[in-house]
Amino acid sequence: MNQEFTNRMLAVVEVTTARPDRPAYHAKVQVLNARVVTEADKAGWTVTRVAAADVTPAALLRLTADADALVIVGGEDVTPHLYGGSTGYEGETAHFAAADEGQIALVQRALALGTPLLGICRGLQIINVALGGNLVQHIDDGIHKNIGVPIDQILSTHDVTLSNDSTLAASLGRVDISVQSAHHQIVDRLGSGLVAAAHAPDGLIEALEHETAPIIGVQWHPEAPDAPVDQLALLLAGLAAQHDARARVTNALAA
């Protein structure tokens, strides 16, 4: 860890702490979310874990106000009306509108303040919607999610190619990677200031970045137990590097 900056504060923002009607799905999500917290703690972050559906959007902003960086993790589909979509589509999941609104507010504040932010799976989609983009509501091709299997087997392994000049490629140290994903929605129109940073073999967008702000979204799950061993650690290190660069500028301007 860079000793120049210590006690970095990371907010890991999930959807909800309770899904009594979907225990198997909830257990899977909790395994993934817990790994983000564990890996961040190992990397030296002081971690706050917040469920957006369990508080109001205003409270979510307040609880994460001191965070040096944010991770918005996976979960249910984004509420359709927030991106001009309609309900009743194939594969539709439960929606948590208050959580969506709170997480969208987090993205917009991160953009305004320059706070480093990583979105994972649904987190990428929240970033896109927050900045005015929309989503393809359903894909069912067997590449991005294993179809018709128990929840513990739902993650699909496939290749992703990163853009050569992307922050992601710099963080991960290569442009061709293997990932694990489990999504049925994807980016359609990119939000304002966002660019595609990675594509799957079928041409679908697998990651996005903001042109000027330290905001990155990956559609895959680097926190999955069977993901490449260093993938999540490298992404968290990228967040730390973005925070440290921002802090140096702030300190220089204050000097």
Rank of each mutant, 00 (worst) to 15 (best):
E223G: 03
L168W: 00
V78H: 06
D202H: 08
V13E: 06
V13F: 05
I186M: 04
H199S: 11
T93Q: 02
R122P: 09
L61Y: 02
G173A: 05
D141E: 15
H95S: 13
G238T: 05
Y89E: 02
I104L: 14
S86Y: 09
Q231P: 05
N251T: 13
L204R: 13
N2R: 10
H243D: 14
G142R: 05
I120S: 07
G84K: 06
A227M: 02
R19L: 15
H199P: 01
T87H: 15
A197Y: 00
V73T: 15
L155I: 01
I120M: 05
Q103D: 04
A99P: 12
Y25D: 15
N251E: 15
A40G: 14
H183D: 05
D68I: 01
I127F: 11
P228V: 04
K42G: 06
L194A: 08
G133E: 09
I215R: 02
A254V: 05
R122H: 07
D188W: 02
E4I: 13
A207C: 01
A53P: 03
K145H: 13
V50Q: 09
L82V: 08
I104M: 14
S192A: 15
I215S: 03
H199V: 08
I120G: 09
G119T: 12
P228M: 05
F96G: 02
G173E: 06
L239E: 13
A196V: 06
I143H: 09
V15F: 10
T212L: 04
I205P: 01
G119R: 08
V50W: 05
P20Y: 09
V149G: 07
A247T: 12
A240S: 14
P214Y: 07
I139G: 01
R8P: 05
A52G: 04
N164S: 13
V175Q: 07
A200V: 02
T93G: 02
N7C: 02
Q180R: 15
L190Y: 01
I177C: 01
V47T: 10
